[in-house]
């Protein structure tokens, strides 16, 4: 998870909404890529879950996009996908041929946690009150998503793959 060229201190509500839309779009596209990879590599159950996530992320994206257009109409975007790296999108490294549904759900849980951390870490830098309110709302929504994934996890059959434990990522030097 990383960003490039975003100045949170000067972020306007329009840019913040556009970023939120792009974050959901990135996640949607990544889930689709991972689902296609797993379908090619004969891992249909986990692929079905990733396809479900494509629909979930698209719903989130379109809701945010609607809000953006209600507030700012067709004013041009001044943020791009090149500014965000894997904010809510699972990293490519998360997929494995033969991964279980449990492992796919755990990958999704890590992504929801990443997204929560993104908004939580950005918030202290944000100055604009409306952006603060939006980011707080989105941070809390990510907690809601985590609860939903946890419910799915509790119901999911099978064991997680050993390679997909939920331990914290090592910290880069």
């Amino acid at each position: 998870m990383a960003t490039q060229g975003i100045n949170f201190q000067n972020l306007s509500l329009k840019d913040a909404l556009d970023l939120a839309v792009l974050i959901e779009e990135e996640a949607r596209d990544r889930y689709l890529e991972l689902a296609e990879q797993l379908e090619t590599h004969h891992t249909p159950e986990a692929a079905v879950f990733f396809r479900k996530m494509v629909r979930v992320e698209e719903i989130h994206r379109s809701q945010l996009d609607k809000r953006r257009h209600e507030l700012f109409g067709d004013m041009p975007m001044t943020v791009t996908r090149a500014m965000i790296f894997d904010i809510e999108a699972p990293e490519y490294d998360e997929a494995r041929a033969d991964m279980s549904v449990q492992a796919a759900l755990q990958a999704s849980m890590r992504s929801e946690k990443k997204a929560h951390d993104f908004f939580a870490r950005a918030l202290p830098e944000v100055r604009d009150e409306a952006v603060k309110a939006l980011f707080s709302e989105l941070r809390d929504e990510e907690l809601e998503h985590q609860r939903w994934v946890q419910l799915e996890l509790d119901r999911a059959p099978g064991e997680p793959n050993p390679a997909f434990d939920d331990s914290d990522e090592p910290v880069a030097l």
């Binding site: 991972l34 990879q37 991964m99």
Partner: peptide, 19 residues
């Protein structure tokens, strides 16, 4: 559509090249 194994590092490389 790439046919690399899911999780292959080359997925990251091609993304970095697009950027």
């Amino acid at each position: 559509k790439p046919i690399w194994c899911p999780g292959c590092g080359d997925y990251g490389v091609v993304q970095a090249i697009y950027r």
